[in-house]
């Protein structure tokens, strides 16, 4: 079976959608030469009108995309670094997201915001290592964090076809992954995936952390039977899928690369405990409150949610009952 890399999956999704729909076009910095690699070969195939390099004007080109979308175009805006989302939070949340309701349904804003390389990039330090997906979930903007090459392809395709704005976080820690994928297909937004079934505890893992959760589940096999649930889309969240899993296992751990306060892990736990009587108090493994990733690799790792803390959390929720 052919092996598909995560980056190549994003590239293929862009190429397929550009080919399928004339209204799709790309905007971003250094995308003609594909500095991030996800737009490789697209300039040659689709030309500079549809693969548009922008000046360093994130706020203007984000709202330019909104304007184009209001007329029926489907722009994909690439951001070189996740922190740029802070610059354009206003343009996405205050305009793109609010226009349909504020106009009483007169318009749609089908823009995709793509961050190929979110979260820690080891050595890129404080201003290049953010993972602000919970912010967009909080604002009610459709937010996806694909963990695998197949999901990277399938969720990006669905994001581009969605009539609402969608933010696609492609974690830096997942970009080098490869997987056997014969024929990638669209993956519906808002649908989670059980990567591994288990009986004792549900571990909800976001993005690249799915692979850490699977590794820990493997290690613990024999002692604890771990189910790994990947929501894939954080907003809208697949509550039915998760509640089904937790109903089977009765225990919950969430591993989430957000800062702790108001991160998606808190929302997952709150929603589950509102509806399910768990057999043990749930746990979450996150970045610390207010985290700024320090430069030195050991420090960077120290504030990211990792396998050791995940093992501890699993031990905690399974130790009695």
């Amino acid at each position: 079976m052919p092996r598909l890399s995560y980056r190549r999956a994003l590239n293929r999704a862009l190429a397929d959608e550009l080919a399928r729909d004339e209204e799709v076009f790309l905007l971003g910095e250094d995308i003609r030469v594909a500095a991030s690699a996800v737009t490789a070969g697209l300039l040659k195939r689709f030309g500079p009108e549809r693969v548009r390099d922008t000046p360093l004007s994130e706020q203007a080109f984000t709202s330019f995309a909104t304007g184009a979308a209001l007329t029926g175009a489907r722009p994909v805006v690439e951001f070189q670094i996740p922190a740029l989302l802070f610059l354009v939070f206003e343009q996405i949340v205050n305009h793109a997201h609010k226009f349909p309701l504020m106009t009483g349904g007169q318009c749609a804003v089908p823009v995709t915001y793509l961050v190929p390389g979110s979260g820690s990039r080891t050595g890129w330090a404080g201003q290049h290592s953010d993972h602000p997906y919970s912010l967009f979930a909080h604002a009610g903007v459709t937010t996806v964090v694909p963990a695998t090459p197949a999901d990277a392809y399938g969720l990006l395709v669905s994001a581009i076809r969605c009539d609402d704005p969608v933010v696609v976080f492609a974690p830096a820690a997942a970009l080098e992954l490869r997987a056997e994928v014969s024929d990638p297909v669209p993956v519906p937004l808002g649908r989670g995936r059980v990567h591994r079934t288990g009986a004792d505890v549900t571990v909800v893992a976001v993005g690249h952390l799915v692979h850490d959760a699977l590794a820990v589940a493997d290690e613990l096999a024999g002692e604890v039977s771990v189910e790994v649930f990947d929501p894939r889309t954080l907003y809208p969240f697949d509550w039915d899928g998760l509640l089904g899993s937790v109903a089977r296992t009765g225990r919950l751990v969430v591993v989430d690369d957000s800062n702790r306060s108001c991160g998606i892990a808190g929302e997952v736990i709150a929603t589950v405990v509102e509806q399910v009587r768990l057999q043990a108090p749930p746990r979450r493994v996150t970045r610390p409150d207010g985290a700024v990733l320090p430069f030195a690799p050991a420090l960077d790792r120290a504030v990211q949610p990792g396998r050791e803390l995940l093992r501890q959390a699993i031990a905690h929720v399974t130790k009695d009952g």
């Binding site: 330019f64 909104t66 304007g67 184009a68 979308a69 205050n94 305009h95």
Partner: peptide
Amino acid sequence: AGGAIVTGAVWAR
């Protein structure tokens, strides 16, 4: 805020 939005709309049409 309006300038960039109308610029994108006119460009796309």
